[in-house]
Design a protein around this nucleic acid. Structure first.
Length: 448
RNA sequence: GGCCCUAUCGUCUAACGGUUAGGACGAAGCCUUCUCAAGGCUUAAAUCCGGGUUCGAUUCCCGGUAGGGUCACCA
């Protein structure tokens, strides 16, 4: 048994929305902690007073909560400046750091800062993902670790907090790889043990550059995906697949499966491009598992009251579920008129009742013929029981005739008469949806 | 530019040094109850280049090339 309890942390700075790459970092930390029965700490790194905003912190917490990545402990770095100060003073007293006179070159810069006395050595560390990394710290110079005793900077605060919070594994993005040597230097100066590092490959944009809010816009924030109607499970599932795989053909994982199967050693070294089409596919896989009620809830959310007030709206749920990749597609389909014919009579162009050439199998089809076919269907359906007007029953009633007369020709006209669309669900599903009375009326309109 | 990291289909990725280089998304085509969706099947599609090591390199080593990250009194 491991005598030391695993503690990981996700340490964002509250300077903006949670980034999709941040989602992945948080997830990896979460998974690693959970699979080792450890602790997952959320630490807000807000030492930069200029750029931080309280609202971003709230957003971060909400986002993580929505994703279901619950933290076991919450810390705020800025509240710990007394502790940082204590260490800083000790570093100075021990000669590891010194107060340095400066000539400010930018506004806000101080005339005195605290610099770390660089021992100029070669730092070698083991990375769980990358293996041995070796860096000569000489060219780092005596870097600044605090603006003053009360104002610690990132590197110092991180090292002290990781130490004091008992962080055993630092799992973070590759952009921090080059920060690690100087953090190790500080660690050694304060006598802190070295955590185990794991630097994850970056999530890349289509052009293979690092995904950044500034360059790639809103599509990097979690908020965007939530608003688009992606499920949190799907986002997590998608993001974990960038840079990691189970070694099997499995692609859809529940959180429990991830906690069990995730292996940090199997994480890829190279960065991975965010592929929205794959996200769509994964999301659809999750949507398929949703109940009618859950789908209906989204229909209410994305569509106007006028529309959702229609009687029978709940029957739309199974149809919608089959067609959408993400919930915002509901709105999109609505705008494209995909739902119009369920509650409103469509306009039927006589010429369109004749199916496209491909489906006619070389035969000529006249309007007269189509009209006769529809009359036949009308007759079949007229004899049916109004209370047992199911897709299955309707199909049975019409099937033999359609087969004899030519399915393409008959069914196209039947479907088009009901929907007025070249694309729509099949005529049986539509008939059931509309009910006997409305179905017959639409048929007679088309015949007339 | 210095330092660091990386390199298999368009994308995400499999492959004890020995495979017809596998899967998934996407694309194309076919089938399934007409269209769309779903489902099934099929096809196209990759080891960056050059040297080694080895009987044999996608795999190990070196070099090149390309890409990325990072070089703050931000995190």
């Amino acid at each position: 048994m491991n005598p030391e309890k695993v503690v990981t942390r996700f340490a964002p700075s509250p300077t903006g929305f949670l980034h999709i790459g941040g989602v992945r970092t948080a997830l990896f930390n979460y998974l690693f902690a959970k699979q080792n029965k450890g602790e997952f700490v959320l630490r807000i790194e807000d030492t930069d007073k200029e750029r931080n905003k309280e609202e971003w912190t709230e957003g971060l917490i909400k986002d993580l909560d929505w994703l279901g990545l619950k933290h076991d402990r919450f810390e705020t770095q800025s509240k710990r400046f007394e502790i940082h100060k204590k260490y800083l003073q000790k570093l100075i007293d021990d000669g590891y750091a010194y107060i340095s006179k400066e000539t400010p070159t930018e506004v806000g810069q101080r005339e005195e800062v605290i610099r770390f006395r660089n021992p100029n050595k070669i730092v070698i560390f083991e990375d769980l993902i990358r293996g041995t990394v070796s860096v000569d710290t000489s060219d780092l110079n005596d870097f600044v670790i605090a603006r003053s005793l009360e104002e610690p900077l990132y590197h110092l605060a991180v090292v002290i907090d990781d130490f004091e919070m008992g962080i055993t594994h630092v799992i973070r993005g590759e952009e921090h790889l080059s920060n690690t040597p100087r953090q190790i230097l500080i660690q050694e100066a304060i006598g802190a043990p070295r955590p185990i590092y794991a630097h994850m490959p970056l999530v890349l944009a289509t052009d293979r550059s690092k995904l950044s809010k500034r360059i790639h816009g809103e599509t990097v924030s979690l908020t965007y995906y939530r608003e688009q109607g992606y499920l949190p499970e799907a986002i997590l599932n998608f993001v974990v697949m960038i840079g990691w795989n189970s070694g099997t053909d499995q692609e859809i994982f529940s959180m429990d499966e991830l906690i069990e199967q995730f292996k940090i050693e199997k994480v890829q070294k190279g960065g991975g491009v965010l592929n929205v089409e794959k996200l769509d596919w994964i999301n659809k896989e999750y949507i398929k598992k949703l109940s009618d009620e859950e789908i209906l809830e989204q229909i209410y959310k994305y569509l106007s009251k006028d529309f959702t007030a229609n009687k029978g709206i709940e029957k739309l749920a199974p149809i919608v579920r089959e067609r959408i990749f993400k919930f915002s597609d509901i709105k999109k389909f609505y705008n494209e008129g995909e739902f119009s014919y369920y509650f409103e009579r469509p306009t039927v162009e006589k010429a369109n009742l004749i199916c496209p050439e491909k489906l006619r199998k070389g035969k000529e089809v006249t309007e007269e013929e189509v009209k006769n076919n529809l009359e036949k269907i009308f007759e079949f359906l007229s004899t049916m029981d109004e209370t047992d007007f199911s897709a299955e029953k309707i199909k049975t009633a019409v099937w033999d005739f359609a087969t004899t007369a030519g399915r393409g020709v008959v069914l196209w006209a039947f479907r088009y008469a009901l929907s007025g669309k070249e694309r729509s669900p099949d005529p049986f599903v539509l008939s059931e949806f509309l009910g006997k009375k409305e179905t017959l009326e639409r048929l007679s309109v088309a015949i007339r």
